[in-house]
Design a protein around this nucleic acid. Structure first.
Lengths: 189, 189
DNA sequence: GAAAAACATTGACCTAGCGCAACGTTTTCA
DNA sequence: TGAAAACGTTGCGCTAGGTCAATGTTTTTC
């Protein structure tokens, strides 16, 4: 149950077995069906999720109903609606499991407590933030000035199975192009 | 000299006077002239900067010479080429003072040491990362689907003096539109 | 397992905004 | 302080990619 999580932590920081145990007990398993909503816009996010199996998507819906996908967490990744989770304000985003998934969730109080009392966990959280920051920046700024073809090539290079696991519509909204354009672009790869 | 920095820290975390002193001694003052380069692409970033007066810009140059501005730090803000600073890899970005500025800089070893030995400083760094992440996301994803006029209105609302302090060219490259389009857009506000 | 709903693909049309160029203004620096 | 370089603004033509709609395919639901 906690195998992937243990690997995640162990590979990033030295940690005592007792601390690992303490961490495990804070995470509880959740099973979802396909497209199950984990958080709706307007709610305050109370949990951080770790993906054992399946996939989480974070997205927003603009006026007019258009969706923008911000982030996907696959097996072995963490994900949450960070602004809401951190500041305990109503989320502007939605969070859903886009496949039948097995998740581990931890509530905010426990999470912050672990961050503050287990140095290795605090370190890992800092890493998550740093990496998230770096990834988001490189993806997004890299995209400035990319045309559709370059964006698609970029995602194929950096997340090879992304286009295979995610629907066209979601992938398009992640890349910031229309589904039609993504279709056309894939056709001429 | 350290007044702004003290305010910054004090307003974000309770901290002992002795720890504040320790922090000060790690920061050394730097004066720059207008457009002075602090870091060139390809170099490894060794310093974190705090802006006492003036402004720092982080930007990249694509093939073809086109610039993209990623981030501006004004008075009372922190800035660095984070990916390079964190991972000690050659930076893909440039960092410059775009005005005659007074900065405080701290080197990486001292910075990490403070993060690890002064809890309040570690907390503040985590806050910087969290806020940076949130800001970057909200700016960038908010822009998905914005047309030029909406982008300009957004920046006027969120950073009212931005367009006044930053050249058209830089502002345009920050908003992801061409200087011509920014000119035209401002003309019809 | 059949009807309905959502999705992918492709074609036709249209527009926001880009590149380029011209021209006036501001900044730089010797 | 004066020449040269950089910048801001505006006009013009072009194109990448958006919307809308039609058709076929997959998924959902009862």
């Amino acid at each position: 149950m906690h195998g992937l999580l243990r690997d995640y932590i162990r590979s990033r920081a030295g940690i005592a077995e007792a601390d690992l145990e303490r961490i495990y007990t804070c995470f509880s398993p959740v099973r979802t069906k396909r497209n199950e909503l984990l958080l709706a816009s307007g709610e305050v996010c109370q949990h951080y999720y770790f993906v054992n199996k399946g996939c989480i998507r974070i997205y927003t819906i603009h006026e007019g109903g258009k969706e923008t996908s911000r982030f996907f967490a696959f097996e072995g990744g963490f994900g949450t609606a960070l602004p809401s989770f951190i500041e305990q304000t109503p989320a502007s985003e939605y969070m859903q499991a886009i496949e039948r998934s097995e998740l581990l969730k931890i509530n905010r109080a426990d999470f912050l407590h672990l961050v503050e009392t287990i140095p290795a966990f605090g370190f890992i959280y800092r890493q998550i933030l740093e990496q998230g920051f770096i990834m988001a920046q490189s993806r997004i700024y890299g995209f400035q000035g990319f045309d559709a073809l370059e964006k698609v090539k970029w995602v194929i290079r950096h997340q090879p199975d992304f286009l295979l696991r995610v629907s066209n519509k979601m992938a398009a909204s992640y890349l910031g192009i229309s589904p039609s354009t993504l279709s056309r672009t894939k056709a001429r790869l």
